Computed example of a mutant assay.
Amino acid sequence: MKKENNVAATAAHVRQLLTGEGSGHDWWHIQRVWNNAKSIATQEPSDLYVVELAALLHDIGDHKFHNGDETIGPKMAKEWLEQLKVEEEVIQHVCQIIKDLSYKGAGTSSAMHSLEGRIVQDADRLDAIGAIGIARTFAYGGHKNRELHNPEINPVLHDTFEAYKASTAPTINHFYEKLLLLKDRMHTETAKKVAEERHSYMESFLAQFYREWEGSL
């Protein structure tokens, strides 16, 4: 019962913090990742408690909104979980997942050290592709005042996390720098199957986008 209460309290806490956020990293993103993670976890021999807490807290202090500081998220999660008196082993596991979760660039690995981490990472990545992923990408681009597309600026496959974080490229470039690469970076069989369909949808969207961009009627 304590675990259920902690998960419910965490969901309420995160919802209060992120409701109304306009860049695509809002409460509804968290809820989708949480639901995705729970669905994947039913197919894997994992610790559902860790999965749920990590899914709920994974964007509590995203580096993108804290001047690139990667320590904020794990720190905020740790402080919250300590308030709930969660076991230290669980806190460390959840914080490690949050630390390792972010995509770090096409040429940079983002290794996960536990099955629970791989589940949450898959769940988060699924929400970055497909129809929702497209919507979130343009929401974030608008939030950062980026161009939709600029044919004179080519995508870059960043080989360091610092270069990836510093990018100010047009939104369409993000498809080639991240979104279209995620299908082959899924860990679980469940996520791989879902990613295939969502990947195809993005390819269709891009084909239509370029036809309209060129004025092809």
Rank of each mutant, 00 (worst) to 15 (best):
T168Q: 15
D62E: 01
G130M: 08
G133I: 04
H187N: 14
G142Q: 09
I97Y: 02
F175E: 01
Q92N: 11
L206A: 11
D159S: 10
E197N: 11
A12S: 11
A9Y: 07
V33R: 00
A106G: 15
S39W: 09
E203I: 12
E189Q: 13
L126C: 01
K78I: 02
G107P: 03
H25S: 09
F65P: 02
L18M: 11
K3G: 02
L57D: 01
P74E: 10
G22H: 06
Y164H: 12
K178G: 05
Y176T: 02
A128E: 13
R125A: 01
Q208K: 15
A77I: 07
I98Q: 01
H187V: 02
F138V: 01
L181S: 03
A8M: 08
R118N: 04
V14G: 04
K193V: 14
A54W: 06
N6R: 12
H149R: 02
A207H: 08
H63I: 05
A54V: 06
D47S: 09
F65E: 09
Q92C: 05
K104G: 01
I72K: 03
L57V: 05
V51W: 06
I97R: 05
L179W: 00
A111N: 03
N35G: 10
H63Q: 14
Q96N: 15
H187C: 05
E21Q: 11
R15C: 12
M1H: 07
P155N: 00
L48H: 04
L148P: 00
E89Q: 15
A106M: 07
T137D: 04
K192F: 14
H113N: 15
T19M: 13
E189G: 11
A135S: 07
Q83V: 08
A163K: 14
E177C: 10
E44K: 07
L17Q: 13
R146K: 11
A37M: 02
T42N: 13
M1Y: 03
M112R: 05
E87C: 08
T188N: 05
N6S: 11
I172M: 13
T42W: 11
L56H: 02
S109G: 09
A195D: 14
K178I: 02
S200A: 14
A12R: 12
V14E: 06
I98S: 09
T71Y: 08
S167G: 14
S23T: 08
G142I: 07
I129V: 14
E89F: 07
S204A: 15
G22T: 15
T168Y: 08
K178N: 10
V7D: 03
M112F: 09
S110H: 13
Q43T: 14
N6T: 09
L181C: 10
Q208Y: 09
L157Q: 13
E162Y: 07
S204V: 06
